[in-house]
C-alpha cells in the first residue's frame, strides 16, 4: 500500500502484519525443502512400485503412529500447514509481478485466507484422528 509521506512510516510498520507472515513464509519454505522431497519419493514411487515394505503407509502403521502420539500430530501439523503460508506469499507476489498489481489486496486476502483456512482444517482433522 502506498503511504503519502514518510512521517506515517513508523506507524504503518508498527501496525503491519508483515513480520508474522514473513516468518511463516520462511518456516514453510524450510519445512517444505527438508521434508517434501523424501515424502514424494515414498508416496509417488516407492509405495506404488512395491519397492517399500508392505506396511509402509498401510492403515495400521499410519493410524497407530498418528493416533497414538501428539508429537507425531504436531510434526504432521507443521509439515502440512506451514508450507501453505510459503505458497501464499510466493503465489500472491508472483501474480502481482506478472500484472495483477491493482488487485494486490484481494490476492493477499485470498492467498493468506486460504493458508489460514488450510491450517485450521489441518488442526481439526489431526485432532480427530
Amino acid at each position: 500500500m502506498v503511504i503519502a509521506g514518510n512521517r506515517n512510516l513508523g506507524l504503518v510498520m508498527a501496525k503491519s502484519n508483515e513480520p508474522i507472515f514473513w516468518s511463516l513464509f520462511s518456516a514453510g519454505g524450510m519445512v517444505a525443502a527438508l521434508f517434501l522431497p523424501i515424502l514424494m519419493v515414498i508416496t509417488g514411487f516407492l509405495v506404488p512400485n512395491e519397492l517399500a515394505p508392505q506396511y509402509t503407509l498401510s492403515y495400521d502403521q499410519v493410524n497407530s503412529a498418528v493416533s497414538g502420539s501428539n508429537i507425531v500430530k504436531l510434526v504432521l501439523f507443521a509439515v502440512i500447514a506451514l508450507p501453505f503460508f510459503h505458497w501464499a506469499h510466493r503465489f500472491k507476489f508472483t501474480l502481482v509481478d506478472i500484472g495483477l498489481r491493482k488487485i494486490s489486496l484481494l490476492l493477499g486476502v485470498l492467498c493468506y485466507g486460504g493458508a489460514i483456512s488450510a491450517t485450521l482444517i489441518t488442526a481439526i482433522i489431526l485432532w480427530r484422528i
Binding site: 514453510g28 517444505a32 517434501l36 515424502l39 514424494m40 508416496t43 504432521l76 509439515v79 502440512i80 500447514a81 508450507p83 501453505f84 510459503h86 505458497w87 506469499h89 510466493r90 503465489f91 488450510a118 482444517i121 489441518t122 482433522i125
Partner: peptide, 12 residues
C-alpha cells in the same frame, strides 16, 4: 510453491 501447496493438500 504451487507444487509445494498441492502436495501438502494431498497429505491433508
Amino acid at each position: 510453491s504451487v507444487a509445494v501447496a498441492g502436495y501438502c493438500g494431498f497429505l491433508l
